[in-house]
């Protein structure tokens, strides 16, 4: 039984430039690179924000966090932002101990992350929304 991590997208019509991904399972050394490739594949050129819902992720090691950090680098390089939502105590601990928590906007839930983005007068409410 090797670790499995699955990825689901939650498109939101009101946030066309936001990619919302939910991770489920266990993210570790054995599957982190594969997950990065799948996430990068889902990231379209016009995406400016990335929301990662980690509420169903039961395990994440330092390799996993570094992959999330790589996704952050990608999105910030294009002037975008990243937030992570739904960190359980186990995940929060590894984020905090590694000190890498400082690089992510942490929201209690995916809904909170979405609401915050909707409220923000950012590039995401693109001309097409008007």
């Amino acid at each position: 039984m090797t670790a499995a991590v699955s990825l689901a997208t939650y498109p939101d019509d009101t946030l066309p430039q936001t990619l919302i991904l939910a991770l489920e399972g266990q993210l570790d050394y054995t599957n982190a690179e594969q997950l990065r490739e799948r996430a990068v594949h889902l990231l379209a050129d016009d995406h400016r924000s990335l929301i990662l819902d980690l509420s169903e992720l039961t395990f994440c090691d330092s390799t996993g966090i570094r992959i999330l950090l790589a996704l952050r680098t990608l999105i910030t390089a294009r002037g975008g932002s990243i937030s992570v939502a739904g960190l359980g105590p186990r995940l929060l601990k590894i984020f905090q101990v590694t000190g890498l928590v400082q690089f992510f906007a942490v929201q209690p839930t995916r809904a909170d992350a979405v609401a915050l983005l909707r409220a923000a007068p950012s590039a995401d409410q693109s001309p097409s929304a008007g």
């Binding site: 039984m1 090797t2 670790a3 499995a4 570790d28 054995t30 395990f59």
Partner: peptide, 9 residues
């Protein structure tokens, strides 16, 4: 081995 999930369990 590469099966870290099994080791953790």
């Amino acid at each position: 081995t590469a099966d870290l999930a099994l080791l953790r369990e």
